[in-house]
Every structure is written in structure tokens, then in C-alpha cells.
Design a protein around this nucleic acid. Structure first.
Length: 862
RNA sequence: GCCGGGAUGGCGGAAUUGGUAGACGCGCUGGACUCAAAAUCCAGUAUGGGAAACCAUGUGUGGGUUCGAGUCCCACCCCCGGCACCA
């Protein structure tokens, strides 16, 4: 063992050994318990960012820990390789997306290896490989055959200058990000997968996902948004048909004073044909992005259509309005408006001076003024004719029965969840395996013609998909026939690929979508990734897994037994603001800060010119704020173990993590100190075992701390997933071992046990450093990976004395050491007898004494 | 706007079931070693008062429950994530 800690020397050596021994290659072994640990695979954007480092370190720590428990651990890695950034790179640098993507993968794979993650690289896959995507093409044709796929028009963001569909992200303040053109909503045919057919199961199974965070399950429940209500048909006054709405509050039916329809609603369109004003209003509503976050923040606007419906109970005429906040994609695209009992309707009614009518009164008999503010609670009906006096449930039933008998309404369960729009008008994605024959006859590809390979060698002209003009791709024949056909140019949403990669990792070379090996490894035991995926990706993956189950390709109901959601990696921002308000951001690495005598940062200056810059808030590392710290620089400087240790120590996984360069220095210092401690210990020669020596009190106390640390760290890693406190506990133990003089055999024996314990407990986190130290402590090279996780010796944990805190009226006044077996009465007597305590009792009467055994005594006085 | 989450010293964080607020680390201050620096080691470090013992205050804001609240309840403020074509 070298006397100085030199990660640049040891890390490549240890990694070479792992490589030579194929240390992380795994095979199915039914005789052993499996553990499948999966991290969300990265988009190959170019370089690893800190979020990746954090995510993959967490996964690697869990994998290595599980392996030390003796399990057969699968930890794979691959690439979510299709997506928009590759097209942007193609447009900017004139490089084909495939080439750009594969170069990024090569670079990032090297970075992952440099960090020492224990992946079975033989299972690596990239979603842009035809061997991967052919199976989702095949699966899509199966879904089509089962009626789970359909085509329908949907609204997209259309850039009228670039003549292309824009992602929501590409619409900035209502304009295309490249062209600056005002974006239009445009309807085009799209492909959908029927996720709503699985809505009930996706909802119900959340209750069985005990290993998922409640927050994620709540978000998914709300996203699915199951509600029971009434579909009511209001007859149009001109007799041209019905206007259908869905409501969960049929009890408020008498309070309807107007109807509101989406700008895309057929009723609105019909009105627009007759009125230029309405047409202009609808056209203006179309000039906005499709994003719900944008739509919901718009100023509420509306216009009467000059059309009315008949109220199904009163027969009154109710005016129909078009309103920009009604979404065509929700429900029927029309709502009955009850301004007295709905906040949004109230706001709109107030704005346009529409009548507000109270039809529900508070249960407790109090009065409310619905003209001033909507009363949204459930209550007792009033001003509702024969239904007056009924409570919510009774009113719901009575109105549902009445309208039902007249054929005007049906009970319905509705979901907020919409079917999954899977088609994209983009090049860099998996081609949707469909062709169109004469008369646009739609034919799915046959299995023998799959994969439909995406041509990779493409030249970019303009901004839209080169597939649109590529004859060699477009022109084909119908499956099993010589008849000419045209290929679909749409590609899949990239969530399609990421919805099943976990299953493919089990058998990446299978000559089928998955084979029997998936039965051994699935489901994933723990899935780790960013909280931002709480709904979309994780819901689609759950859905896809159920689709695969129903196709006989999976046996479990859910793909991920446990879910660990990771917080973001943040960093402070630095900027200068120009007169026009435009901010220029400076990378923290290019800024020097000045602190006052307390360490408070009071000033920051740019290295480039030495002039001050403004200190901004701490935000998620991003390109736009130029506050990213390149992990590579730190790995080069400190080594992988220090970066791994710091990322795990700085915050628990679920919380956001604020990056601090100086604290990285601290992690490095700890490893150097531990290295030195081990070096000094082994330099003297082999130490005796604890069993061979007898211990004095100080040695027993030190040994007790060793075993308490085992208990603490094991609980933190296995149950709590709190690696920061696990590391803190080991740091405390190292500090204690450092302070112990080691002249005698007994202390050296305890130290040997303590150091071995530290090495074992840290092995999953800093695997290179610990592997070398393990060897120095007398173990076989390479044996740490499969060394058994330490188990605390209960005899070593026994304490004969406990510290009890004594409070007077809830304020800490003393601390006393009492024998561990002293009963509550004895503890109380000891507390009252303590002179520090007595001082605070003088002249007062003891009213009550609360004794919490083993912890605290609270004396209540007055 | 809707859904979910967060807020604790100068900083990152700890306090696991309502029971000692500030573990561990960073930074900072003072000291040792050194020609000097780096590295390392020792001491101190929530705030206010005090020489000290100690006392008071203190977990985003305002209320409440409790012997006892960072933790539970009510109302609010600010920040972050998601909102269906970023991944």
C-alpha cells in the first residue's frame, strides 16, 4: 500500500481488474435471489452532467450493497438515443443526427466507465438501434390488431414560416423559437394508443405500489383524474341537435346561466360560418401554443355565439358562449357554467356580466353571497324547484334519474387522462410501421418486413424532417403484394422507446421483443431517476408493461417494485444585466467570490476582467443559466471516488443538491485521512483478532461504536436510502478510530475490526479506494465486491449507562447519566435530586412529571 | 391557473415514531509545524447578554393543539418540479 492516497493511480488499476475479471457480467441463476437495479437511462446529449453522476452513483451504491448481501445483481446501462436535440445539432452543425448521437454515446460511455459504475456492459443498448426499435414496431402492429391503436386529428403548434410542427418547448411567448413567427394551433391526423382503456387499472394498482413515494402516486392519481358524473345533453334551441357536457355537479344544474364551448368545438365553428366576428375571435384563440400551462394562464376571453340551448329541467333558453379557457381535449369540449358555485365560471360571469344564481346553500344553515364569491362546497339545494332541500348525493341521484328517464343524461365515469398521442412529425425517431396504399388505405407493416429502418445518412435542408422528401424511404409496396404504397413519415414519441427498455435489458440479444430471461429478472426491484418523470414517463412505462403483460410478454402487473426519485443538482448563478434587461450569465467556475470575515459571500468578480458580477439565486444546473459544473473536471482533479462520495454526502437522494466545490475538497480530505489511518495501522504488521484479546472499558466503548455504526449505516442504506447520514456515521467512526492510541494489541485488534468495518460500509460508495484498502488489511485482491455485508454483534452493543435529559417546563436544565436498567421511578427520583434541576424548582410546586424511558424527564411546575 | 414538493447557523445538511435543535462536512477565526507555502494537526464557531457558570431568544410568516412542536392542525408568503411534442 502506497503511503499517499493517489486516486489517479489506483482507480484505473482497479477498473482494469474489474474489466479483466468480467466482474459485473451477470447471468440468470434460478438458485440465487436476483436483484434488478435500474437507473433511468440518459439522453446522449454530449457529456455527462451532475444529475447523471448523482443518479448513477445512487444506483451503483444500491447495486453493490445488494451484491454484498449475496444477491445476483443486474445493473444495465443504455441510451435513450432518439430525440429533438440531435435534430437541432443537425440543423446547426450540418451533421447527421445518427452520427452526432453515436459520437456522444461513445464519449459518455467512457465517462461512465471512468466513474467506476458496475454495469454489465454486454447488455448495453441504444434505442436508435434497429435491433431495438424493430420490436416496438412489431408490438405496435400487435396493438393495432388488438384495436388499441387508432388515428384521429389533434391540435399541434404550427410554425407558419418554418412550415413545421413545434414542440411546446420550442414555443417562446407564443412564437416559434427559430422563426419568431406567431404560432398557430393546427389540427392534423395523429396516432393514439388507448391508455384510457387501462385508466382504471393504472389507478387501482397504485394502491399496491408500496415501494413508491406517496407524492408520485398522488400525482399519478390526479393525472388520471377519475370522476363520476353525468353526461347531459342540452338540446340546441334551433333544433339542430344536442350540446353535450360532462359534469360532476349535476346538483347545481338549476344554477346554469350560460354554456361555454371550446374554440374548436363544432358548435363554435358552425357559428363562425355565420358571424365574421365569431370567426375572428376563434382565429385569435388559435394563435397560442397548445400547452395547458400557457392556456390556463391566459386572460379569460369569450364571446356569445348567438345560439341557445334549452335547459333540460326548466326549459329556459341558456346562451352558448365560446371561451378560450375551455379545452377541446377535455371531456366533450363544452361545459355547463354555474357561476354561483364554480370559481372559474364566476370570474367569467363577472367579467361579462352574466347572471349568477345561487342553487346550493351551506349545510349548516349559514348564508353566503354568491354574487361576491362562488360557493363551491357541497350543500343543500335551493332555488331548484322540486329538488330543493336535497343534499348533494340525493340531488345527484334525483336529477340523474329524472334526466335519465327522459333520455337527456347518462351516468358516466370520466378521466382527465387522455389517450397517448404517439406520433411525431420528426425525423430522428422510430418510424411508425405503417404504409398507405391507394386511396390512402392504411396497412400496418407485416412482421417479415420489420424493422422499417430509419435512413441514417441524411442531409438537412431547412428544419423539417428529411423523410418528407426522401423517395427511397417513401416509396414502397403493400406488405405481401407488389402494389405501390407510401410509407408513414411520422415517428414515435421517444417515450415509446423508454417505456419498455427495462424489459429488453434482461435479454438484449433476444430474437423476440423479450424472452424467458425477462421472467427471471423482471420486475425491476428498484428504479431510480429524476422526480420530473413522476407522471409522464412513469405512467407510460406502467401502461406499456400492462400492454406487454396482456400480450403474454410479462408476468407481473407492474414493472417497478420500488421507485426512488432523485432531486435536482443546483448551483448558484452569476450574471450581468445590460440596459435592455438582457442577462449574461457567467459560469461559476469563471467567477471568483469574496467573503467577509464570517464566510458570507459579499461580492463576485468575473475572472475574465476582474469586474463585479451580480449574484443570482441557486437554480437547477442548466445551459441557459450557464451554471453547470462539468463533472469531468472534478473527476480529473480528485478521482471518481471523491466525486461519488461528495454527491452522496451532500444531500439525501430525494432532495435537491446544491453543488459546492470546496465541499468536494472535504470529501477528498476524508478519503486521504482514512487512507493514512489504514496505512499507519498496517505498517506495524498484522493485528490480533478481537476474540484473542480482552478489552478494557475504552476499548469496549470504541468497539461498541464500531457496531453501532454497522446498525446505523445498514438501516440508512437498506431502509432509508439516506446515504448522507450513512457517510456521516462512518466519518464519526473514523474520527473515533483516529483518536484511539494503538500501542497495545487489544486496541490494535479493535482498530483492525473498526477499519475493516469502515471499508466494508464504504465499499459501495467508494469502490476503488476501499478495494485497495481491503487488500492492505489482509484480504484477497478483488474479494471486496462479494465480501459479506457486516452484521453487528449484539453483545458489543450493550450499554450499562444511559444519558437522560431533564427538562423543567419543557426547557432542558440538566443531563444525567443513569444505569441502563434503572426504572422510571428511579429516573424520576434521580432527576428531582439533581442540583441543577433543583435550582429551577425552588419556590415552585411540581404538578406533574413526565418520564420517557431511556430519553427524558419533563418536570412540570407552577 | 391546476397537481406535487420544499423552506432549519455564513453554506450543504442532521434531528428516523411529538421528546436534548444544529450530528457530519464546508467555510471562517485563532494557534502549532514550516524560511515560506501547501499538506497536516489542535482549539473555537446559531444569535444576544456575560470574564465564566449561566440566562434569554431561535427551525419562512401569523395563529392553534400538547407536559413538550423543526415535526401535528388552520391560514398565508416565497421557492422548486410537472402540466400531455424537452427528456
Amino acid at each position: 500500500m502506497e503511503d499517499r492516497y493517489n486516486p489517479a493511480d489506483i482507480e484505473p488499476r482497479v477498473q482494469q481488474r474489474w474489466h479483466d475479471t468480467q466482474a459485473f457480467a451477470v447471468r440468470e441463476d434460478p438458485s440465487r435471489e436476483k436483484f434488478y437495479c435500474l437507473c433511468m437511462f440518459p439522453y446522449p446529449s454530449g457529456r455527462l452532467h451532475m444529475g447523471h453522476v448523482r443518479n448513477y452513483t445512487i444506483g451503483d451504491v444500491i447495486s453493490r450493497y445488494q451484491r454484498m448481501l449475496g444477491k445476483n445483481v443486474l445493473q444495465p446501462m443504455g441510451w435513450d438515443a432518439f430525440g429533438l436535440p440531435a435534430e437541432n445539432a443537425a440543423i446547426e452543425n450540418n451533421v447527421p443526427p445518427a452520427k452526432w448521437t453515436r459520437a456522444n454515446i461513445d464519449y459518455m460511455r467512457g465517462q461512465l466507465k471512468r466513474l467506476g459504475f458496475g454495469y454489465d456492459w454486454a447488455r448495453e443498448l441504444a434505442t436508435c438501434d434497429p435491433d431495438y426499435y424493430r420490436w416496438e414496431q412489431w408490438f405496435f402492429t400487435q396493438l393495432y390488431a388488438r384495436g388499441l391503436v387508432y388515428r384521429k386529428t389533434a391540435v399541434v403548434n404550427w410554425d407558419p414560416i418554418d412550415q413545421t410542427v413545434l414542440a411546446n418547448e420550442q414555443v417562446i411567448d407564443g412564437r416559434g423559437w427559430r422563426s419568431g413567427a406567431l404560432v398557430e394551433r393546427r389540427e392534423i391526423p395523429q396516432w393514439f394508443v388507448r391508455i384510457t382503456a387501462y385508466a382504471d387499472e393504472l389507478l387501482a394498482d397504485l394502491d399496491r405500489l408500496e415501494g413508491w413515494p406517496e407524492a408520485v402516486k398522488t400525482m399519478q392519481r390526479n393525472w388520471i383524474g377519475r370522476s363520476e358524473g353525468l353526461r347531459i345533453r342540452f338540446p340546441l334551441a334551433d333544433g339542430s341537435g344536442d350540446l353535450e357536457v360532462f359534469t360532476t355537479r349535476p346538483d347545481t344544474l338549476h344554477g346554469v346561466t350560460y354554456m361555454a364551448v371550446a374554440p374548436e368545438h363544432p358548435v363554435a365553428r358552425r357559428a363562425a360560418e355565420a358571424s365574421a366576428e365569431v370567426a375572428a375571435f376563434i382565429a385569435s384563440c388559435a394563435q397560442t401554443s397548445t400547452s395547458e400551462a400557457v392556456l390556463e394562464k391566459l386572460e379569460k376571453r369569450g364571446m356569445p355565439l348567438g345560439i341557445a340551448v334549452r335547459h333540460p329541467l326548466t326549459g329556459e333558453d341558456v346562451p352558448v358562449w365560446v371561451a378560450n379557457f375551455v379545452l377541446m381535449s377535455y371531456g366533450t369540449g363544452a361545459v355547463m357554467s354555474v357561476p354561483g358555485h364554480d370559481e372559474r365560471d364566476h370570474e367569467f360571469a363577472t367579467l361579462y356580466r352574466l347572471p349568477i344564481r345561487q342553487v346550493v346553500a351551506p349545510q349548516d344553515g349559514s348564508t353566503v353571497d354568491v354574487q361576491a364569491v362562488a360557493f363551491t362546497d357541497k350543500g343543500v339545494l335551493c332555488n331548484s324547484g322540486e329538488f330543493d332541500g336535497l343534499a348533494f348525493a340525493a340531488a345527484f341521484d334525483a336529477i340523474a334519474n329524472r334526466l335519465g328517464a327522459e333520455g337527456r343524461a347518462t351516468r358516466e365515469v370520466q378521466y382527465r387522462l387522455r389517450d397517448w398521442l404517439v406520433s411525431r412529425q420528426r425525423y430522428w425517431g422510430c418510424p411508425i410501421p405503417v404504409v398507405y396504399g391507394e386511396d390512402d388505405q392504411l396497412v400496418p407493416e407485416s412482421a417479415d418486413r420489420l424493422p422499417v429502418v430509419l435512413p441514417e445518412n441524411v442531409a438537412w435542408e431547412g428544419v423539417s424532417s428529411p423523410l418528407f422528401k426522401m423517395k427511397s424511404f417513401l416509396e414502397t409496396t403493400l406488405p405481401g403484394s407488389a402494389a405501390p404504397a407510401r410509407r408513414e413519415t411520422d415517428t414515435f414519441d421517444t417515450f415509446f422507446e423508454s417505456s419498455w427498455y427495462y424489459a429488453r435489458f434482461c435479454c438484449p440479444d433476444a430474437d423476440a421483443m423479450v424472452d424467458e430471461r425477462a421472467r427471471y429478472w423482471m420486475p425491476v426491484d428498484i428504479y431510480i431517476g429524476g422526480i420530473e418523470h413522476a407522471v409522464l414517463h412513469l405512467l407510460y412505462a406502467r401502461f406499456f408493461h400492462k400492454l406487454m403483460r396482456d400480450a403474454g410478454l410479462a408476468v407481473s402487473d407492474e414493472p417497478f417494485t420500488r421507485l426512488l426519485t432523485q432531486g435536482m443538482v443546483c448551483k448558484e448563478t452569476y450574471f450581468r444585466e445590460a440596459d435592455n434587461g438582457k442577462k449574461t450569465y457567467f459560469n461559476p467556475a469563471a467567477v471568483a467570490t469574496v467573503a467577509d470575515e464570517k464566510g458570507r459571500v459579499i461580492e463576485a468578480r468575473a475572472n475574465v476582467d476582474g469586474q463585479p458580477v451580480q449574484i443570482g439565486p441557486v437554480e437547477k444546473m442548466s445551459k441557459s443559466k450557464n451554471n453547470g459544473i462539468d463533472p469531468q473536471t472534478l473527476i480529473d482533479k480528485y478521482g471518481a471516488d471523491t466525486v461519488r462520495l461528495y454527491t452522496m454526502f451532500a444531500a439525501p437522494p430525494e432532495q435537491s443538491l446544491e453543488w459546492s466545490d470546496s465541499a468536494v475538497e472535504g470529501a477528498s480530505r476524508f478519503l486521504r485521512g482514512l487512507w493514512r489511518l489504514v496505512h499507519e495501522h498496517v505498517a506495524v504488521g498484522a493485528a490480533p483478532t478481537v476474540a484473542a484479546v480482552s478489552l478494557d472499558e475504552a476499548q469496549r466503548t470504541l468497539r461498541r461504536r464500531v457496531h453501532e455504526t454497522i446498525v446505523k449505516v445498514t438501516d440508512d442504506i437498506s431502509r432509508r436510502y439516506k446515504f448522507n447520514t450513512a457517510i456521516a456515521a462512518v466519518m464519526e467512526l473514523v474520527n473515533a478510530l483516529q483518536k484511539a492510541a494503538a500501542a497495545d494489541d487489544a486496541t490494535r485488534a479493535v482498530k483492525q475490526e473498526g477499519l475493516e468495518t469502515c471499508v466494508l460500509l464504504l465499499a459501495p460508495i467508494v469502490p476503488h479506494t476501499t478495494e485497495v484498502m481491503w487488500e492492505a488489511l489482509g484480504h484477497a485482491p478483488g474479494s471486496l465486491l462479494d465480501a459479506p455485508w457486516p452484521v453487528a454483534d449484539s453483545a458489543a452493543l450493550v450499554r450499562d449507562e444511559l444519558n437522560i435529559v431533564v427538562q423543567v417546563n419543557g426547557k432542558k436544565r440538566a443531563e444525567l447519566a443513569v444505569p441502563a436498567d434503572l426504572d422510571a421511578a428511579g429516573v424520576e427520583a434521580a432527576a428531582l435530586a439533581d442540583p441543577q434541576v433543583a435550582r429551577h424548582l425552588e419556590g415552585l410546586t411540581v404538578r406533574k412529571v413526565v418520564v420517557i424511558p431511556g430519553r427524558l424527564v419533563n418536570i412540570v411546575v407552577a
